[in-house]
């Protein structure tokens, strides 16, 4: 090991740093903030389930917000870092360790050359984000590096990581070492819970549902079933039967849309959702509450509270402003 060897950002490295996947973990994918502009062709937005957490990681490292990282689900991978590299782990606390020693969450640390990053017990949340100085590299597919497994687009050949994969790291705009120790102050760190109240606005087919159905939605908690993944969460709870048919002529759906099929059990659409759908859209979860919902696990509880669209916009702006204040975006 070369003690005191300058980090790659300050000199031109002979080759880009590589991360080796020794074990892939349960479901680890490359994600950024998503693929926009092609929904009219049926291309899902995808991207990080918890956009707030990956953005914090990138900003701590001085990366642009669009830099790609790894979304680690439940049971983390084991990764070998060929070269020294600044990293941050944000989102769910899956007990990350460097060479067996616990590392702090929401903080920039250096992975020494030849060191291993591992994950252990799940302490809170479901999805952790590994961001690295320079971002995870790879081809931009229709403007994004996000993996959408269902259509086989983006990331590493459109799939989750496998053993012996190699990940390239992009050129860091600054020496990553400048940011070592940079941390998201404790009061701003989210506390992921197993019981979340998400705020919603009325959806395009809200009128198809009776006041009774709305009452039930606002008063009873729903549980995430095992059929909950990056596409959406199937929820179990009181049925929300529409007054007329549950089916509509297909039109656009969005992340956060709450669809209700004929059985009355709502489906909350998440990052990998299709671009269009034919079920009535009762409501839409607001963007400010996406992060907490992204960290729920099957069996966890989700309640809903209705707010006006104006309130939803105000909450979007205030949560954005808070992040800008605590961690301004990196500017060139």
């Amino acid at each position: 090991m070369m003690e005191g060897f300058p980090l790659y950002g300050s000199i031109m490295p002979s080759k880009p740093p590589t991360i080796h996947v020794l074990r892939p973990g349960l479901f680890t994918t490359i994600q950024d903030l998503g693929r926009y502009g092609y929904q009219r062709f049926g291309v899902s937005v995808s991207g990080a389930m918890d956009p707030w957490a990956i953005t914090v990681g990138n900003r701590l490292l001085g990366n642009p917000d669009q830099a790609a990282g790894l979304e680690v689900t439940m049971q983390g991978p084991e990764l070998l870092f060929e070269e020294a590299l600044s990293i941050a782990v944000t989102g769910a606390d899956l007990s990350p360790t460097i060479n067996g020693v616990a590392m702090p969450m929401w903080t920039v640390v250096v992975m020494p050359a030849g060191s291993r990053l591992q994950f252990g017990m799940r302490r809170g949340g479901v999805r952790a984000y590994l961001t690295v100085a320079g971002g995870i590299d790879g081809p931009l597919i229709l403007g994004s590096r996000s993996t959408h497994v269902r259509s086989g687009l983006g990331g590493l050949a459109g799939r989750a990581l496998k053993q012996w994969d190699r990940l390239d790291v992009g050129p860091a705009r600054t020496a990553g070492s400048n940011y070592v120790g940079r941390t998201l102050p404790e009061p701003h760190r989210p506390r992921y819970r197993t019981s979340v109240t998400a705020r919603v606005i009325r959806g395009p087919q809200a009128d198809r549902f009776t006041d009774d159905a709305w009452q039930r939605l606002a008063s009873s908690p729903y549980r995430l079933t095992l059929e909950s993944d990056r596409m959406g969460y199937r929820l179990q709870g009181p049925a929300l039967t529409p007054r007329t048919s549950a089916d509509i002529v297909s039109d656009a759906v969005s992340v956060g849309s709450i669809q209700v099929p004929a059985d009355g059990l709502p489906i909350l659409l998440m990052a990998d959702c299709q671009t269009t759908g034919g079920y009535a859209k009762l409501a839409t979860m607001i963007a400010a509450d996406r992060s907490l919902a992204a960290q729920l696990f099957p069996g966890d509880s989700l309640s809903f509270r209705v707010v006006t669209p104006d309130k939803a916009s105000e909450l979007f702006r205030s949560s954005h402003a808070e992040l800008e204040r605590v961690l301004p975006p990196h500017t060139t």
Partner: peptide, 8 residues
């Protein structure tokens, strides 16, 4: 509104 960032 479909969401705070989309209108149908």
């Amino acid at each position: 509104p479909l969401s705070e960032s989309a209108l149908t």
